[in-house]
Every structure is written in C-alpha cells, then in structure tokens.
C-alpha cells in the first residue's frame, strides 16, 4: 500500500477511485455542489435586499446616491478580465504550456488586488462621510428614516463578497505556486479547475451586485 505522496500528473489517482477520470469528474461534481451552496448563501442577501427595497424604496433611492457607478463599472471590467485570465490559465495547462498558465494566474490575482484596492477607496470615501454600517452610522440621512439600513446591506453584501475575493486570491496563489512547481499537466489539473470555478462564481455574484447596488434606483 503506497504511503508516499501521489504524483497525480503522471496519471496516478487515489486508491478508492477506479481511474483518474473518475477522480477528476467526482472532484468537479464536489465543487459544483459547493458552488450551489454559495449561490444560496449570497442569494439570501439578495432576497432580503429586494424585500426591503420594495418596502422602503426611499431608503434605497437615497442610499444609492452615495455610490459611484464609475468605480462599480471599473470593478466589473476588472473581475470580468480576471475570469478570462483564470479560464486561460486552465486552457494553457490543458495544452501543457505551464509558464503561460502561470502568467495568466498571476494576472488573475493582480486583478483581484485591483478590485480590492478600488473597494478600499470606496469604503474610505464612505467612512469619511460617516456612512458606517448599522449603529455606527453618523452621516447625512437627508430626512430619510432608517437610512442606515441601506448601508447595512451595502457593507454586508460587498463585505461578504470581498472576503470571497480575498479567499479566491489566496487559493489562486496556491495553485499558481503548484503550477510553477510543475504539479499540473494535461493529464491532471483538477485543483486549478476547482479554484477557477470558485473564482468564476465570485465574478458571477459581482455581475449581479453591480446593477443591484450601482445602477438600479
């Protein structure tokens, strides 16, 4: 019984599977199952947002005024680009071009960093105006009762999303290091694909967050 590390790029696979292909397809199914849970978790926030927006349109109208669509649009473009580079990263590994793949993965992480940088700018600007979440809110309400509720949503949704961006960056860095080390090849790239799928869901959530927060009044 092997006790050493399994070198999967040589086509080896864990003992409880019948083949490398079964291991690959099983792992992918596991990732899809996990991604479904992320949709449901974030989705709960979207549901609450729509319900409250229906109940208090004035709160959401006033709150949205403090968001700049320019930052939102730039961030959307940044994340879309990162999804492209993530997909290309896997594409190059599938073709055995590991150094090209590594470049794409690094760009993906950098895009994530740019995204977080812009978020930092946005958050700082809001804090400057006293637009803190919940009880800490000290900004202008413009006469709208319970305006802080809007910012609670804003920080909760972008905050949870931001945590996932950071997690994704960490995961991509991990697979990038492994790519540089030569762990992957056309016969085995499962972790890269799994991480990639996670990253795309992070992008997917932003695709909906952008119009929700920045564009719809």
């Amino acid at each position: 019984m092997s006790t050493g590390k399994i070198i999967r790029k040589d086509g080896h696979y864990a003992h409880h599977f019948e083949s490398a292909e079964q291991e690959y397809t099983s792992s992918k199914q596991g990732v899809w199952l996990f991604l479904s849970t992320e949709i449901l978790m974030f989705g709960g926030l979207f549901v609450a947002f729509f319900i409250y927006k229906g109940m208090y349109p004035e709160i959401f109208h006033k709150g949205a005024e403090s968001l700049s669509w320019v930052y939102g649009a730039i961030n959307t473009a940044v994340l879309l680009t990162s999804s492209l580079t993530m997909a290309l990263g896997i594409h190059y590994i599938q073709k055995g071009k590991n150094s090209a793949a590594l470049t794409q993965l690094i760009i993906t992480v950098l895009c994530g960093a740019i995204f977080m940088g812009i978020k930092y700018i946005e958050y700082s600007h809001k804090f400057h105006l006293g637009l803190y979440p919940g009880q800490m809110f000290s900004g202008e309400t413009g006469g709208v009762e319970n305006l802080p509720l809007y910012f609670s949503f804003y920080y909760m949704m972008t905050g949870l999303h931001g945590i996932h961006v950071l997690l994704g960056m960490g995961l991509i860095t991990w697979v990038a290091i492994r790519t540089a080390r030569g762990d992957f090849g056309p016969k085995y790239y499962t972790p890269v694909e799994g991480v990639g799928l996670f990253w795309h869901v992070v992008d997917l959530i932003w695709i909906y967050l952008f119009p929700l927060l920045y564009l719809v009044e």
Binding site: P133, G134, Q135, M136, N146, P148, L149, S152, Y155, M156
Partner: peptide, 8 residues
C-alpha cells in the same frame, strides 16, 4: 452582525 453592528 445585527448584534454586533446593529445592522437593522
């Protein structure tokens, strides 16, 4: 978050 920040 409700308890810590009073998000409402």
């Amino acid at each position: 978050m409700e308890k810590v920040f009073g998000i409402g």
